[in-house]
Amino acid sequence: MSDFVTEPRQVIRKFLARQQHEGAGAIVRRSIGRSELKYFDPFLLLDEFSVSAPAGFPDHPHRGFETVTYMLHGAMMHEDFEGHKGIIEAGDIQWMTAGRGIVHSEKPAYPHGTHKGLQLWINLSSKYKMTEPDYQEVSSNEIAEVTNEGIKVKIIAGESMGMRSHIHTRTPSMYLDFTLKPGSHHKQPIPTNWNAFVYILEGEGIFGMSRSSPSTAHHLLVLDRDGDGLEVWNRSSRVLRFILVGGEPLEEPVVQYGPFVMNNQEEIDQTIEDFEKCVNGFENARFWNSDT
């Protein structure tokens, strides 16, 4: 993919991700997955989370989609009921395919401090919803990174500035972490007809049109589907950091029941029955059920 952009996309919606409580004492800023933007095909949820022990996300199931956890500060411990266990440190990525079913927990890896990160839920097409669970775990020093003329980008998925991520995306996706120094300007291509959004982590920037008003931290910006990329300026005196995420729309029916995302109500009913009976991907959920 070339970094050549001729028709920048415009921002068609912008709103602030306000704080809410989730899990056991965790605080999140939810943007996708709330009333303002319930679903943005193929994206189901985006949370900017902040957790201090003993808070966390106790044992919970998933089916039918992928979760992408990107640590910004601190570290989180992940453990599932198939015996997979690991720690995601600052800058690390865990790309988890829940597929046909998994039960796991997420909690601070260390007892002190505040642990912060992003979690994105990406829907799976009907042909992948019942695939076997899988993990792609990439440490910070393994993530492709490019710095050029005041622009730094970490390429979690997709391609930017001549570098490509090795993450496999079952739903074709891009996930880029940009840092722009004051005075910087950048254009980033986005595949035609993909949905895309920006989430600002710190600072302020101008997106889409040079005469637009600046957007600040914790705002989600929905881009239109006309055009071939994003154009952004940092005209402030502070560093601007944001993620740009895009994906190919699945254009399939979506029926969601909490942590289960399928294509119709019958599949949701079957998922609930599978979970309650501890079968078809939830064999080890009996331990979860015995504790609740």
Score class of each variant (00 low, 15 high):
residue 288 W to L: 10
residue 165 S to C: 04
residue 162 G to W: 01
residue 264 N to D: 15
residue 87 I to Y: 04
residue 287 F to D: 13
residue 215 S to M: 11
residue 179 T to Q: 15
residue 88 I to D: 07
residue 245 V to P: 01
residue 41 D to T: 01
residue 25 G to R: 08
residue 190 I to T: 05
residue 75 A to W: 00
residue 154 K to I: 04
residue 208 G to H: 02
residue 158 G to K: 04
residue 279 V to P: 06
residue 192 T to A: 13
residue 221 L to V: 09
residue 285 A to E: 04
residue 87 I to D: 06
residue 241 R to N: 13
residue 15 F to S: 06
residue 261 V to Q: 09
residue 161 M to W: 07
residue 220 L to D: 06
residue 115 H to I: 04
residue 84 H to G: 05
residue 177 D to K: 08
residue 25 G to P: 07
residue 199 Y to L: 10
residue 109 A to V: 03
residue 237 S to H: 13
residue 213 S to D: 14
residue 159 E to T: 12
residue 191 P to G: 07
residue 225 R to I: 08
residue 226 D to Y: 06
residue 230 L to K: 01
residue 186 H to S: 12
residue 3 D to N: 14
residue 41 D to M: 03
residue 197 F to Y: 13
residue 7 E to V: 07
residue 157 A to Q: 05
residue 182 P to I: 03
residue 284 N to G: 15
residue 34 R to D: 13
residue 165 S to F: 01
residue 165 S to Q: 01
residue 101 G to V: 07
residue 47 D to P: 04
residue 258 G to M: 05
residue 172 P to V: 03
residue 290 S to G: 12
residue 126 S to Q: 12
residue 255 V to P: 02
residue 148 N to E: 14
residue 62 H to F: 05
residue 54 P to I: 10
residue 183 G to Q: 10
residue 203 G to M: 06
residue 283 E to V: 11
residue 282 F to H: 03
residue 122 I to L: 10
residue 73 H to E: 15
residue 70 Y to P: 00
residue 129 K to D: 01
residue 44 L to P: 05
residue 247 G to L: 00
residue 112 H to P: 00
residue 248 E to W: 00
residue 106 E to V: 03
residue 93 I to E: 03
residue 123 N to V: 00
residue 21 H to C: 11
residue 209 M to I: 14
residue 97 T to Q: 08
residue 89 E to L: 11
residue 197 F to C: 08
residue 126 S to H: 09
residue 7 E to Q: 12
residue 163 M to S: 12
residue 142 E to G: 11
residue 188 Q to W: 02
residue 222 V to P: 01
residue 280 N to W: 03
residue 197 F to I: 08
residue 249 P to G: 09
residue 227 G to S: 04
residue 71 M to R: 00
residue 241 R to Y: 06
residue 274 D to L: 10
residue 55 A to F: 02
residue 259 P to F: 04
residue 205 G to N: 08
residue 57 F to I: 05
residue 291 D to C: 07
residue 19 Q to A: 15
residue 273 E to S: 15
residue 202 E to I: 07
residue 251 E to R: 15
residue 288 W to E: 06
residue 168 H to A: 11
residue 111 P to K: 14
residue 215 S to H: 13
residue 103 V to L: 04
residue 12 I to Y: 08
residue 94 Q to L: 09
residue 27 I to K: 14
residue 239 V to C: 10
residue 203 G to I: 08
residue 226 D to R: 09
residue 101 G to Q: 03
residue 166 H to E: 13
residue 26 A to M: 10
residue 287 F to C: 02
residue 118 L to N: 02
residue 169 T to L: 01
residue 53 A to T: 06
residue 132 E to T: 12
residue 216 T to N: 13
residue 291 D to T: 15
residue 268 I to F: 12
residue 208 G to L: 06
residue 278 C to G: 08
residue 235 R to C: 08
residue 230 L to C: 08
residue 79 E to P: 00
residue 235 R to K: 15
residue 66 E to Y: 00
residue 216 T to Q: 13
residue 22 E to T: 10
residue 203 G to R: 00
residue 277 K to D: 13
